[in-house]
């Protein structure tokens, strides 16, 4: 058929890896990491999303067009977050009256 058939073994390996990453993120939340909590949690979440995307959603076996569409969504999300946060985070930098 059209499309790559992912083996049961690969699917279960990915599932186990996702569970390990889940317990890693819960464990990391209890470590005294202070300001590193958020970057670490987001990194682990991104790793899980990549595993799900590549193997459960078959991106690994897909045409490049699908790759472009999936990455474009992240690009737009990045623009949204970067422009919004650049406003809010920089508001206190300059002492401008009436801001």
């Amino acid at each position: 058929m059209s499309g790559h058939v992912v083996s049961v073994r690969t699917n279960i390996t990915i599932f186990v890896a996702l569970l390990i990453l889940l317990f890693a993120t819960v464990g990391a939340a209890y470590l005294p990491l202070e300001s590193l909590h958020l970057p670490l949690a987001l990194t682990i979440a991104a790793a899980k999303a990549v595993l799900i995307g590549l193997f459960f959603m078959h991106l690994y076996y897909r045409h490049h067009l699908t790759w472009i569409v999936s990455v474009a969504s992240l690009l737009w999300l990045g623009i949204l977050l970067a422009l919004t946060l650049s406003d809010y985070l920089s508001r206190g930098w300059l002492d401008i009256p009436g801001k």
Binding site: S70, S73, L74, W76, L77, L80, L81, L85, L89
Partner: peptide, 26 residues
């Protein structure tokens, strides 16, 4: 690919809330 385009719009749908969350957390 059509479904992926729809999912890209869904990312933006949740993206609005995630941006609001990011602002309030910041």
């Amino acid at each position: 690919v059509g479904m992926w385009v729809f999912l890209a719009t869904e990312v933006m749908f949740f993206g609005g809330l995630i941006a609001a969350y990011a602002v309030y957390r910041a």
